[in-house]
Structure formats: structure tokens, C-alpha cells
């Protein structure tokens, strides 16, 4: 199984890496690039803990081959804060206690940001269905949904202001 050379952009920076043909983007991010913020909870696309942006789509990085991202742009949880400034979702997840163990949190944040980028004014139901692919076993989702609702409101306010 000869390794494949891949060139890609991750969080705005250019990376070149070698990977096995059957190696997933998640494995590449975690084991080759050292970006361990994306988590493996299932390797079957059922938990969302490995969510990243591939181009303008949120995807499960466990269901993307590393070789596929040649020439593409990948954005991970590590690229979500703007330098030292947390994204409003990150800030509000802390404020609203929307995490307990925190393992699913990166995936939720990436997926929630993708939602707000697309729909700045989602209903509770829209949030719940958009995030249905992100499993959280700790919180019962209540505080996560509240944090997303609040962030949307806050960001709309800033956009208007």
C-alpha cells in the first residue's frame, strides 16, 4: 500500500502530507498533522465528533479519505477562534455550560457554526435536526441548543448594530 502525497489547506495554512490510501482525513488530522481537536467516537459517521468543514460543507472527517482533500480546504475546530478571540459559539458554549465532558464539543461547534453561517436565524427545531448527527451523552442537548439559539441572536444583533 504505497503512500499518497497530498497537498491541502488546513485552517488557512498549506500542508503537505503522506497518507495510506485507506487512511481517513480524521486519522491524517490527528496522527499526521497533530490536530487532535477532531475526535473519533465511532468511525462510522454516526456521532459527529470528527466534524470538520470540507470546503463549504460540514462533513464527518472519519468518512473522508485523506487522499480526497488534495487541493481542497479543510477547516477544523483548531481554526475556529480568531487568534485569541473565541468565536461567539465557543464563548457561549462555556457560558451556558453546554459541555460536560467536552469530547463531543468540537464537533458540535463546527456543525453549529456551519448552521449559523447558512441560517443566521434558526428555530429550535431546525437546530435540533441540523445537529442530530452530533451525539452528546452528557447534556441531554438542552444547554447546547440554548447556547446556539443565544449565539444566533447575539450575532444577528451584532450584524444589525
Amino acid at each position: 500500500m504505497a503512500n499518497i502525497q497530498v497537498s491541502t489547506k488546513i485552517n488557512g495554512d498549506t500542508y503537505e502530507f503522506l497518507c495510506r490510501p485507506d487512511e481517513t482525513l480524521l486519522e491524517v488530522l490527528r496522527d499526521r498533522i497533530g490536530l487532535t481537536g477532531s475526535k473519533e467516537g465511532c468511525a462510522s459517521g454516526d456521532c459527529g465528533a470528527c466534524s470538520v468543514m470540507l470546503g463549504d460543507r460540514v462533513v464527518s472527517s472519519c468518512l473522508v479519505l485523506g487522499a480526497e482533500v488534495e487541493g481542497q480546504e479543510v477547516n477544523t475546530i483548531e481554526g475556529m477562534a480568531d487568534g485569541g478571540n473565541l468565536h461567539p459559539l465557543q464563548r457561549n458554549f462555556i457560558k451556558f455550560a453546554a459541555l460536560q465532558c467536552g469530547f463531543c464539543t468540537p464537533g458540535f461547534l463546527v456543525a453549529a457554526k456551519a448552521l449559523l453561517d447558512k441560517n443566521p436565524d434558526p428555530t429550535e427545531t431546525e437546530i435540533r435536526y441540523w445537529l442530530a448527527g452530533n451525539l452528546c451523552r452528557c447534556t441531554g442537548y438542552d444547554k447546547i441548543v440554548r447556547a446556539v439559539l443565544h449565539t444566533a441572536e447575539e450575532m444577528r444583533g451584532q450584524a444589525r448594530g
Binding site: 459517521g45 454516526d46 459527529g48 466534524s51 470540507l54 460543507r57 460540514v58 462533513v59 464527518s60 468518512l63 473522508v64 456543525a111 456551519a114 448552521l115 441540523w130 445537529l131 442530530a132 448527527g133 452530533n134
Partner: peptide, 9 residues
């Protein structure tokens, strides 16, 4: 079919 994440692929 699948989650939001799956839908994108």
C-alpha cells in the same frame, strides 16, 4: 439519508 454531515457527501 444520514446526518447533516452525511448529506454534504
Amino acid at each position: 439519508i444520514g446526518s447533516t454531515q452525511v448529506q454534504g457527501r
